[in-house]
């Protein structure tokens, strides 16, 4: 078990019903974590989702460490 800080934006925030949460999880990678959160919050299927670990773009298979902050990034639409 590790403790992670998850922050939600845009469509993920709407589905999660919160902008951040502290989570105890067995997820080893962002990919595992995304599967877990999708099941819990009912995230919709999206074409391109990216992940950020500790405020930098990360890889879906990077091992997650105790205390990491994780943000899933739905398709962006600035401008």
């Amino acid at each position: 078990m590790k403790t992670l800080a998850i922050e939600y934006f845009a469509i993920f925030r709407d589905h999660a019903g919160t902008d951040k949460e502290i989570l105890q999880t067995d997820a080893d990678t962002p990919a595992d974590l995304y599967t877990e959160l999708t099941a819990r919050h009912g995230f919709p299927e999206l074409e391109t989702v990216k992940v950020a670990i500790n405020d930098e773009f990360g890889d879906w298979n990077t091992p997650l460490n105790e205390g990491d902050s994780v943000v899933f990034i739905p398709p962006v639409a600035g401008g």
Binding site: P74, P75, V76, A77
Partner: peptide, 19 residues
């Protein structure tokens, strides 16, 4: 850049663009 835009429509619907 991770910026998102939610549109509120005259129809009463709303939605996150590209999502």
């Amino acid at each position: 850049v991770p910026v998102w835009k939610k549109e509120y429509y005259a129809s009463g619907d709303s939605g996150w663009v590209n999502c």
